[in-house]
Nucleic acid binder design. Structure first.
Lengths: 194, 194
DNA sequence: ACCTGAACACCGTTCAAGT
DNA sequence: ACCTGAACACCGTTCAAGT
């Protein structure tokens, strides 16, 4: 499960400290300047050389995946809240909002997630979290379909794309307070059984 | 109407030639490498210095707007084809596809268009074409609403965002042959009157 | 008035040298 | 084994010098 070190027993103290400070700093920079922020600035702000950052996280996606892992707990909290919802259609709706919020955590996050969702190759570190999100979406979707509240032709992947698109619209700044609900209404009316 | 020169009478021959070759080269590079392509490479390939490109098109958006103007004729062709469609709902549907195709001409085009659609300021050269597209969308929408085929709460801007999102999904590579029609179906079912 | 190419700043990525 | 900072390559943007 550990993605650092060469399989040895005891990871050196400075290594785990560096990894932690890099992740923490990256999280702040992503929050402030979006996922396209300068990695050089992250390294400098974390007090490490650029090569150290690259050793820990070979690609920007790897760093992003590491940061997102810190945020995954919040999603579990949302899921436990949704578990208390009796109506399957309402549960699906709330999960869609949770997805949308999750995708909106950092500016520019939707794009790499979309790319990772396409290429199912394990080379991309974002593929795994994406697949998990799609699986969860399929779960809520199936429940709603079993209750006869959602059309049978709807797929979990479609809803994943839809939620991601909503976050992207928010990310670009388009989509004011009136247009976003309008879009949501269109999507919801589109998949719900009349 | 002319956006080049200092309002003088006769633009110099090399100026118009440079502008033409820059636009043509940029069009090819956008097509091959997306709208985020290297402007330096465009200038070099066009046989001009980088400063010449900047003089003609001070921002990447200005260059993009110039290139898109070349493509605007195709959109007019689509409109004339749609004019032959009797059913207002079908006309709207076809216009949505035309929009989606237009947004898909270059990889990465949806994003700057979204930004331009938000900031209505005339500083962004893409604002004008965006507003025109939204106006046209409102036209087809109003017709369909007048025919009682589309919900009253739907707005032209919402459909503009939806078509742009579809193009964005295509642009990222996600959205295979099954998921894109699924999303379209969701959106169409969402705004159509049952 | 316009063009040119050099110059500057910034960033991603890698490598030789340290500990 | 890991870290460091210098080094390289690339690109956007501007400026002094040309015509």
């Amino acid at each position: 499960m550990s993605d650092d070190g060469a399989g040895g027993r005891k990871p050196r103290a400075d290594v785990v400290r560096n990894r932690a400070i890099i992740l923490q700093t990256a999280q702040q920079h992503f929050q402030l300047h979006g996922v396209g922020t300068s990695l050089e600035a992250v390294a400098k702000d974390a007090g490490v050389g650029p090569a150290t950052l690259y050793r820990h996280f070979p690609t920007r996606e790897a760093l992003l995946a590491g940061v997102l892992q810190l945020r995954s707990e919040e999603l579990l909290v949302r899921q436990s809240q949704i578990a208390a919802v009796a109506d399957a259609d309402e549960a699906l709706k709330q999960w869609m909002r949770a997805l949308e919020d999750y995708f909106s955590t950092y500016s520019g996050l939707p794009e790499p997630l979309m790319v990772a969702a396409r290429e199912r190759e394990p080379g991309n570190p974002l593929t795994l979290p994406c697949e998990e999100l799609i699986r969860t979406t399929e779960h809520y979707l199936t429940e709603a379909q079993r209750a006869g509240q959602v059309e049978d032709w709807v797929k979990g992947y479609d809803l994943f794309l839809a939620a991601n698109s909503m976050a992207w619209i928010k990310s670009t700044g388009a989509g004011d307070e009136t247009s976003l609900p309008g879009l949501r209404k269109m999507i919801e009316n589109g998949y719900r059984r009349p």
